[in-house]
Design a binder for these strands. Structure first.
Lengths: 346, 346
DNA sequence: TTGTAAGCGTTATCAT
DNA sequence: ATGATAACGCTTACAA
């Protein structure tokens, strides 16, 4: 390993001068700059980040904590984070937390001793303990969680997104719309999304039909079962994750119901799963990659605190349509229902 | 930030003694150990990894380089790596390379200056340049690539896996089996898998039918189109990725052919995608998570070089079956065809 | 058993 | 414009 001293010797100058040249500071002649640069090239010198960080206290690693590194949502966010980090010259340190606070604490400690420039937390809320553990020098930001506490965060408005989604189904003419939700204590977004659904249903004078799943594919079929038990005449299902939505599509078809002719299905997240089912899932898209990028940008802008709301959008694919004429009376569309979030088609 | 000196002062000993206690070395009385431990607790002292590494030259970070952090295969491997790394007290530094050698080089440099304990490369072959860049002190290992060069690696035998897969379809009675492959220069596993398919087909006296896709879902439909153009009487399709396999299932159904009654479909990798289609895909499973874990273990066992072959296995789900009687003559099973890889059902 | 001091590779301060 | 020199926080001979 070649050090700054080697370069200094080779160039016939002091280490201090080499440091100045390498860091583009002032205080050397063109002549010496040239000599130093030559030496750097010849010896293939690369400054040691560790030593540099030890001295300057400024580092170039960003911590990224995800409950699972292998689920589609986290993967997308990770991708955005990784790209933005590289672009700004930062390295990413990855931790899989499984949402276990002991794991999170462990990573936070590690990140502190590595003097991380900041920490990004996917799908988890920032607690007081976490802030404590990191110390005041290291900022932390959450991604993909609507956080009411005012901590730095990048997320969509989950309540509004679910509201818009439900409104969309109502507008198509559906009245009996089942919600495939999730456990609100382990899955933080489940609560606001449920509120959004309930609000839209209440405004339309429809009664809610709700079952809870795990957000994983496997829980889709039992979830549908439960919804149908509560309301056999269901004409639409709004699933809080694409995985559950995909499972519902497959399960409906297995039961001999056509999608979307008999039952419409709407997913959430616009992960690749939504395209792997036939017909492809209509879904609510979160700009996950953008959210990851935004998170590092906020982290790096010294004090850009507070929550940042990103736009969601409805993507219409083949899994949603108006209910069959006659299957129930048509829903009357009121003027107020025209204002909706922007919507696009893929 | 509290340093070793603070603790020393608090405990009334020298920094050296604190270091000894903290690192569990010998050379102090029970009495002082107690005093030091108290001070550590009271001051909430945490040794600085950076300074420690600078001195000892041994680090606790493992570099993990993946072409995409958001595809299902890499995610699974990452998960295994992450788990094993944590278990051994290592942190994971993540890099997304897109297989661009410039990106890889950049990360390798970073990892060198961070004195990484080792580097894990997903879905890419280790080149001489990479080894050069890392220097002799840092080992590197590839995962999910059959590497003939003898560099450290953890992978399945892709040739054999594809051979077994094809044999399985032959044994079911299929003769006209299409292969949905991939570009062998950008997707390294495409070549051995193709060889395995060709060998099995040749042994059975069947002529190969091959189309190239990208391994992504989108390429499944055009790939099937091409296969059918070459051989309209196809009764089975072997896709080199689950994504392509899932697309083929959907596309076949769209064209009014039933799976598996009219056409069988076999995927590869056993990613979650294989379960998100109906009927669920039969597929070749790689133990991706195990492979990730194995990679860090090999890295950490000082000099456990060379390639490590992991077992693949065939998972039978609903997308494969014998061809319809009469659609073609039954294939005669020879005794040699009985020896097959272990196989399980999910 | 314990302390002193040197040094890991930098950068920053202060002379010159 | 350049060079000594002293940190950064830790480990490790070596000495006591």
């Amino acid at each position: 390993m070649t050090t700054i001293r080697d370069v200094a010797k080779q160039a016939g100058v002091s280490p201090a001068t080499v440091s100045r040249v390498v860091n583009g500071l002032v205080g050397y002649s063109d002549e010496t700059r040239k000599r130093v640069e030559d030496a750097v090239l010849r010896l293939n010198y690369e400054p040691d980040s560790l030593a540099r960080t030890l001295k300057t206290r400024q580092t170039s690693v960003i911590g990224l904590l995800a409950p699972m590194v292998s689920d589609a949502l986290a993967s997308q966010v990770m991708r955005g984070v990784e790209d933005a980090a590289r672009e700004h010259g930062y390295a990413v340190m990855l931790g899989r937390t499984g949402l276990k606070s002991a794991y999170i604490a462990g990573y936070l400690r590690t990140l502190r001793t590595y003097r991380a420039a900041g920490v990004i937390l996917i799908s988890a809320v920032i607690t007081h303990d976490m802030r404590q553990l990191l110390g005041p020098a290291i900022p932390i930001i959450s991604v993909a969680i609507s956080d009411k506490s005012g901590s730095p965060s990048v997320a969509i408005n989950d309540e509004l997104a679910a509201y818009d989604a439900t409104r969309y189904l109502l507008k198509l003419g559906h009245r009996r719309i089942g919600l495939l939700a999730g456990d609100p204590v382990s899955i933080f977004v489940a609560r606001p999304r449920r509120r959004g659904y309930e609000r839209a249903m209440a405004e339309a004078g429809c009664s809610p039909v709700i079952a809870e799943g795990t957000f994983f594919y496997e829980s889709g079929a039992p979830g549908l079962e439960e919804l149908l038990r509560q309301e056999p005449e269901l004409t639409a299902v709004f699933a809080m994750s694409d995985e559950m939505g995909a499972a519902v599509v497959n399960e409906l078809q297995k039961r001999g119901r056509r999608v979307p002719e008999d039952v419409s299905v709407l997913g959430f997240d616009n992960t690749s799963t939504s395209q792997h089912v036939h017909p492809p899932l209509s879904t609510i898209a979160q700009p996950l990659e953008d959210m990851g990028q935004m998170a590092v940008k906020k982290l790096l802008r010294s004090r850009d605190l507070g929550p940042r709301i990103m736009p969601h959008r409805l993507i219409e694919r083949g899994s949603t349509a108006a209910p069959r004429a006659g299957s129930q009376r048509q829903h009357q569309v009121s003027p107020a229902e025209q204002k909706q979030s922007p919507r696009s088609t893929t």
